[in-house]
Design a protein around this nucleic acid. Structure first.
Lengths: 140, 140
DNA sequence: CAAGTTGTGATAGAACTGTGGCACAAGATC
DNA sequence: GATCTTGTGCCACAGTTCTATCACAACTTG
């Protein structure tokens, strides 16, 4: 058991946010396909060494974003209508990661620069760990 | 005064980390050039609506990373030897941001995917808000 | 040299969030 | 239909972090 801890322990922000973000990344990038099932709340909690309630909270956030569908005893699965990042963007991300890793950069630093660049271009910055999702809605 | 709040209020993580990261992004990306001076601790604190002590803490973290040099009454300036992200990486970041914004994506989501991609390729993930810096050290 | 500027340090109080463990509800499975 | 699985809700407790304010030390500037 616990052979495939989909998530890895990171210490960005709070446990709840951490779990939420990791799954969001997996889903939005398509690495966790539609209808694919995520570990149970307890499993995830155990994997990351957090309290079950904390993992549960993260799952709720995911559902609120429409990224997953949770039916009570069937577990939580990736929603079919889960928003995904356009492939063009995903590819650019991969390119960036490759280049950054080759340069021996730290992910956090890259992210900081990304944030700065984002604001420099768009204007609107951030602050959306809560409600919005911002990825493209597939004209349902 | 307070005409140019270099930083903008975000709510990622804690205030201290927030300030730290924003400046790190500005410096590492070169948007804040060497020897350029950052706002006073009190100014930054006021801009973001936090306690002075909190801003000071962030400044210390920056200095610990060798990103800034702080002399007691002369203020805090960007260190000449401040590590910078290779231009190739910076450019890729800009391209990514442009594409992502065009797609109407949310920065946080993009970042989540970036993190996932990073782990998928490199293996080592994160957890370095504290000590390491990871950017390229100019063979001091 | 005198005055202003700026980062540091300490302190007490408050607010937030996660922890643990438990029972419960709802649906799946055989 | 009985049992197992799985997400939810609740609670008091603990830990960390931020606030708010003060005085201090050190260096710059006129």
């Amino acid at each position: 058991m616990t052979a495939n801890p989909i998530l890895s322990a990171t210490d960005d922000g709070s446990p709840t946010t951490d779990i939420y973000r990791q799954f969001r990344g997996l889903i939005v990038s398509g690495q966790l396909g539609a209808n694919e099932r995520l570990p149970t709340v307890r499993q995830t909690a155990a994997d990351l060494g957090v309290a079950p309630g904390t993992a549960a909270k993260a799952y709720r956030m995911l559902e609120q974003d429409g990224l997953v569908v949770t039916r009570t005893a069937a577990g939580t699965r990736v929603a079919e209508s889960a928003a995904r990042l356009p492939l063009t963007v995903t590819r650019r991300i991969r390119e960036l990661v490759a280049e950054a890793q080759a340069a021996g950069a730290d992910p956090d630093v890259v992210i900081d620069v990304l944030r700065v660049a984002w604001r420099a271009i768009g204007g609107v910055t951030s602050g959306s760990t809560s409600d919005e999702d911002g990825t493209r809605e597939p004209t349902r």
